[in-house]
Amino acid sequence: MLIVHCPHCGVQADETELTNGGQAHLRRFGPGSSDAEFEAYMFARKNPKGVHFERWRHSYGCGKWFIAARCTATLEVFGTYPAQTTEPPAAIIATIKKRRPEWEGSE
């Protein structure tokens, strides 16, 4: 059972206080998008063994969404940051590259 740091309220939250929201940094495709774009947005999800960016909500705490960069194989958490961003912050990327030199980039 994971513990993940909530960047909004600073709590080392227990997994039971959190809700997982799946892959982060999706780009929304609405009316006007092609079937392929919409399909990819709705259904095509990454399932990497290794570095992954995922959404979490501190649902039993401050209620805020944040994003965790995590290794799905070792469960190492490289860092968390507020969800109000379209891409991972540079500091998080730097941490991941330091811990996983072979990693080829985010999305």
Binding site: C9, V11, T16, E17, Y60, G61, C62
Partner: peptide, 9 residues
């Protein structure tokens, strides 16, 4: 501290 007690907020 906001959290859960057993099964509720």
């Amino acid at each position: 501290r906001r959290t859960r007690v057993a099964q509720v907020a």
